[in-house]
Design a protein around this nucleic acid. Structure first.
Lengths: 116, 116
DNA sequence: TACACGTGTAAGAGAATTCTTACACGTGAA
DNA sequence: TTCACGTGTAAGAATTCTCTTACACGTGTA
């Protein structure tokens, strides 16, 4: 019954990756099918280096997957596709994820006073 | 059947609010019951002004609700509690939210070239 | 009066994000 | 050779986020 969700750190990375309008557009666009970087940049309307950066972020969070392929005319094309994720954001789900946060808990420090 | 989700802008705000270890801890702590600012600051182990700022962000995103109350001995206490939210993060859900993004779509600009 | 406790906010430093511009490399076709 | 297309990355500016410190106000009690 214990549906193990994502780690606290993983969750923070995923949330940070999605908390951006442009990256949200990228995900939405890729949800309609895979595409390679240069073309995707033209479709969305941003510069290629910028898209490259955002794709790195999304890939690092495990939300998209990229694969370098060779086109028929010998060009190196990097295709990206969505990773079919599914996260649920509820108070209890977050409370469970927090248990595995490695971020320095402000608590547990050099014993501070705490009454009541 | 059309379960209207959050607006694109609302979603970005919610994700940005949750994409932070400390704010995640705040939500997790409040999931265990309501509390007032000063006490919550001691429990979590951060300064009150810092907690105040994070609570503002969480409240602006609609994830927590605050109410100023008067204690028996006449002190003004600001209590916060979670807002019982429930967001689902899937490619299709995000694609739907993106439709209502007000963020300047890089596209739709002064007609740029775009061939297939 | 002075202290302990609650509230709120403003100024500033330091760090992280976001974005542009410019450069590097590769291939196939004119 | 030169151009068009693909790849990657580095440097810098502008902005935003995070956090500390310090100040303001209020009440009840020693």
């Amino acid at each position: 019954m214990t549906a193990t969700g994502p780690t606290g750190d993983e969750l923070v990375e995923v949330l940070a990756a999605l908390a951006n309008p442009l990256r949200l557009r990228i995900v939405a666009t890729l949800a309609g099918g895979r595409d390679y970087v240069s073309h995707l940049a033209r479709v969305i309307g941003v510069s290629r280096p910028l898209l490259h950066m955002h794709l790195q972020r999304l890939e690092a969070a495990g939300l998209v997957v990229g694969s370098l392929e060779l086109s028929e005319d010998g060009k190196a094309m990097k295709y990206f596709e969505i990773a079919d994720f599914d996260f649920t954001l509820t108070p209890s789900a977050l409370a469970e994820a927090v248990l595995t946060l490695t971020t320095p808990d402000p608590q547990r420090g050099p014993a501070r006073e705490e009454r009541s």
